[in-house]
């Protein structure tokens, strides 16, 4: 009863969104025939998500799209082209005209896949803006014998090649920093790869493996439920929400890693188009609504400039490349 007014407002909003959806559908045909020579953008823009619909990446794109529509004045249509770790979508992107009417959302795979025999090259893209980051953490099940990161490292030194961790997949954004951990701490761990973060973290919570290395936000449900404990954060500084959890750096292991998503267009897109899109994305990503949605998912909203994002990608490429080569060298 307390929420009835709010409810009806929300319902009105839903109806409006549905109506907008119908308009988008009918508007497509009209938009396509418009003159392309005009100022950018003069027709609908496609935002391709290289993952399945409904995941957190997809939902962040769908939260961003209406904000981008406000900024750019044209429809922004979200389309899913999933498959093969996102490479189907990345690859599709390189085959499109570099005119700014097709954007693709990328994750860390845009730099890691090239080291895993995929024909994906970060040089084929113009990087527009990083949307969000998911800083990493190391967590163990609630009744684990490890009280600190040091306990874990000591145990791994005593039993080389026996301590296990779960990762969301081989060569994934969370498997790679585990290689870094082994190198920095001079230990040997065993990777048990799972199919995505949820089952991987659940395996650590159930005690099937000794620890989980993943995004802090993804581990949070288990930690809040009393099933797991954080041992360390893979961040530069402590997080506001978790003031009592030390960073690995404080504990003498200078290891940082975060998952991320951002938007790119094909290489060769005109500079003014890149700037128009990047400005719109930055404004949209800094809107309260986008920030709230991202923070609700335990992620950190960003909205960086093309220069910052390109520099970031370069650093990620170097770090992950080194880690993957380390893993393959074994």
């Amino acid at each position: 009863m307390k929420i009835s007014l709010r409810n009806s407002l929300k319902s009105a909003k839903f109806v409006a969104v549905a109506a907008l959806g119908a308009l988008v559908a009918t508007g497509c045909a009209a938009g396509a025939s418009e003159d392309e020579a005009g100022d950018f953008p003069s027709k609908d823009i496609r935002l391709v998500v290289p993952w399945e619909a409904g995941g957190s990446g997809d939902l962040s794109a769908r939260t961003l799209a209406p904000k981008l529509e406000e900024e750019l004045g044209v429809n922004v249509i979200v389309e899913n082209r999933p498959g093969a770790n996102g490479s189907v979508g990345y690859n599709w992107m390189t085959e499109q005209e570099p005119d700014g009417y097709n954007m693709v959302m990328v994750g860390a795979e845009i730099v890691t896949l090239q080291y895993l025999d995929y024909e994906i090259d970060p040089a084929d893209y113009e990087f527009l803006s990083q949307l969000l980051a998911g800083p990493g953490g190391i967590a163990v099940r609630a009744d684990s014998p490890y009280e600190t990161l040091d306990d874990l490292i000591q145990d791994a030194k005593e039993r080389p090649g026996e301590v296990t961790y779960s990762s969301p997949g081989v060569g994934s954004v969370w498997d790679n920093p585990a290689q870094g951990l082994q190198e920095l701490a001079d230990i040997e761990l065993i990777n048990v790869p799972f199919d995505g973060s949820a089952p991987s973290i659940a395996a650590a919570a159930a005690g099937d493996v000794d620890f989980s290395i993943d995004a802090v936000g993804s581990q949070k449900a288990q930690v809040d439920g009393g099933e797991m404990r954080y041992l360390a954060l893979l961040t530069e500084e402590r997080l506001e929400d978790l003031p009592d959890v030390p960073t690995a750096k404080e504990l003498g292991i200078d290891l940082q890693n975060a998952s991320f998503t951002g938007l790119v267009v094909p290489d060769g897109t005109p500079e003014d188009v890149v700037n128009t899109l990047a400005d719109a994305i930055q404004t949209a990503a800094q809107s309260d609504e986008f920030k709230e949605t991202i923070e609700a998912s335990n992620l950190i909203p960003k909205g960086t400039s093309p220069e910052e994002f390109s520099e970031f990608i370069k650093q990620e490429d170097e770090r992950h490349g080194a880690w993957i080569k380390l893993a393959q060298g074994e």
Binding site: K220, A221, Q222, D224, G225, G226, N298
Partner: peptide
């Protein structure tokens, strides 16, 4: 994915 966006975190808690 949707529940996270609504700020409901499925899990033991």
């Amino acid at each position: 994915g949707s529940m996270m966006i609504w700020g409901i975190q499925p899990g033991p808690a």
